[in-house]
Write a protein that binds this DNA or RNA. Structure first.
Length: 227
DNA sequence: GGCCAGGACACCA
DNA sequence: TGGTGTCATGGC
């Protein structure tokens, strides 16, 4: 017999414990690192399987060329756009994805970004997932960080850290990990924003450099951890 | 010179 | 449905 409130207390407590420890260790992250919604979206596409340092180079190129608006970027041929975003890697694919996104924005919302973002969490997510080159992580990042809807973003670091913490099984898929978090925590845009940002921060600054987890802020009561 | 980085998709069995 | 190859640049 299921309880009325489906949120089981154990994952919830463990998730909150992780969140609080990271918050204490690293402080507020203030994500997403972008000046506006369009830059956020472009960054989300450019960062697919790419280090953020390379993304910022590509964003700088676009900024210098005055291309960080939907209108300006839409007026550019895919090949030319690819030239600007080259430092972010996969530039042909990402150039096409950006153009596909701009087409979605134009055809669905007459190019109005605010209208698109205000269209509602489910509609926005489904629409973005319909854009070739935008998958669940990129769509959810946009829904959360530009749309400000309470959806939890799963990325490679999240999966790695939650596996390490024994919260999810080896091979758990995106929807499974996301479902675990969203069933465990109340929908809270600010919490999901900070939580994801903190997990990425832990992954970048710690996990990547310490595969044996020495000094991990999430491990205080264990000598070693699953590597 | 190899490995990895804030994924997504096509193709095949 | 799951496994594999492909896309590409730049830092370590």
């Amino acid at each position: 017999m299921k309880k009325k409130n489906d949120r089981s207390p154990r994952p919830r407590q463990r998730l909150l414990k992780i969140y609080r420890r990271l918050e204490k260790a690293y402080g507020p992250q203030g994500w997403w690192p972008a000046k506006g919604d369009f830059e956020m979206i472009v960054g989300a596409i450019l960062t697919q399987n790419t280090s953020w340092a390379n993304v910022t180079r590509a964003l700088d190129n676009l900024q210098r060329a005055g291309l960080l608006t939907p209108k300006k970027m839409a007026g550019l041929a895919a090949v030319e756009l690819g030239g600007h975003i080259r430092p972010a890697g996969y530039f042909r694919q990402k150039s096409r994805t950006l153009k596909e996104f701009l087409r979605f924005l134009r055809e669905g919302y007459r190019g109005n970004l605010e209208d698109m973002l205000a269209s509602g969490q489910e509609k926005l997510r489904a629409g973005l997932l319909g854009v070739r080159g935008i998958g669940p992580e990129t769509a959810d990042s946009i829904v959360l960080y530009a749309g400000h809807y309470p959806v939890f973003v799963v990325d490679a670091y999240t999966g790695r850290i939650f596996r390490c913490q024994g919260l999810i099984a080896e091979g758990a898929k995106y929807a499974e990990i996301q479902g675990m978090v969203m069933a465990g925590l109340e929908p809270d845009e600010r919490l999901f924003n900070e939580f994801h940002a903190l997990l990425v921060h832990l992954g970048k600054t710690h996990c990547r450099k310490n595969p044996r987890c020495e000094g991990c802020p999430l491990i205080r009561d264990r000598v070693s951890s699953i590597s």
